[in-house]
């Protein structure tokens, strides 16, 4: 059992993480580097002169981008362990796990760890004003936990009671509100910040759908290899 989880999670996490890191480097990193030109003061928004929206952002930085690839694979492997553990739990309780419905698991994972916290704590470009990082982390973990439980209840609940609890769990963190900064001090143009958040969500969704797909695929394959009886 543990071997099956371990193998599926490692393969799924590494392959989805590698693709995620390439997508991030292609689509998110240039926006981040652009924002850093404003964060460092090299460019000034609303200064004396209008600033060109097209800047030289440099090419591939082996050290910096190499570390990013490493950490993206690590983070998606961490997600894969949680995802496959939950798939194993569902499998034990009679649910069928396949590559195809892994796609839906992936979307649910994206909603849980990206969209749910990101709705009130939007993916930030460097340099934005934000509340204390520890308080935001507590809110982030609490929101992810609520969303995870809520999606499980939506998927496997069989009456309006669990579905109602799920709705409350999804809404509550946002009704309570995420920690906000006292004042706005961000030097980065709103166009860049908005593009960054949109790109982060887009790449996150793509990566998670792939993670779900791979996790379902490897779970199914490893099960067949171990001779675990398949659901019909």
């Amino acid at each position: 059992m543990f071997t099956r989880i371990l193998t599926s999670a490692l393969f799924a996490g590494a392959s989805a993480g590698l693709i995620a890191s390439l997508l991030q480097l292609s689509f998110v990193q240039p926006v981040l580097l652009h924002a850093e030109l404003y964060e460092s003061g090299e460019l000034v928004h609303f200064g004396a002169q209008a600033v060109s929206a097209h800047q030289d952002l440099g090419g591939f930085d082996a050290m910096r981008d190499g570390l990013s690839i490493f950490f993206t694979i690590l983070i998606y492997s961490g997600y894969a362990f949680i995802l496959v553990a939950l798939m194993a739990l569902a499998d034990q309780r009679g649910a069928e796990i396949t590559a195809r419905n892994g796609l839906v698991w992936g979307v649910a994972g994206f909603v849980t760890v990206h969209l749910a916290p990101g709705v009130s704590l939007a993916p930030e470009v460097p340099g934005v004003a934000a509340a204390d990082v520890y308080i935001r982390q507590v809110w982030w973990f609490a929101t992810v936990a609520c969303a995870g439980v809520a999606l499980w209840l939506i998927a496997f609940g069989k009456s309006w009671v669990p579905w109602g609890i799920a709705a409350i769990l999804l809404i509550a963190p946002h009704a309570i509100g995420a920690p906000e900064p006292d004042s706005f001090t961000g030097p980065v143009p709103t166009e860049i910040a908005a593009l960054f958040a949109a790109r982060a969500f887009g790449v996150g969704l793509a990566a998670w759908v792939l993670l779900g797909l791979f996790a379902g695929y490897f779970w199914e394959r490893e099960g067949a290899r171990e001779g675990v009886p398949q659901h019909s």
């Binding site: 570390l67 983070i75 993916p123 930030e124 990082v133 982060a200 969500f201 996150g204």
Partner: peptide, 15 residues
């Protein structure tokens, strides 16, 4: 510092 860019891109609270 090492994970900085990824933390931003993954939507984690950073800084």
């Amino acid at each position: 510092d090492a994970a900085h860019d990824v933390r931003h891109a993954t939507g984690f609270p950073c800084h």
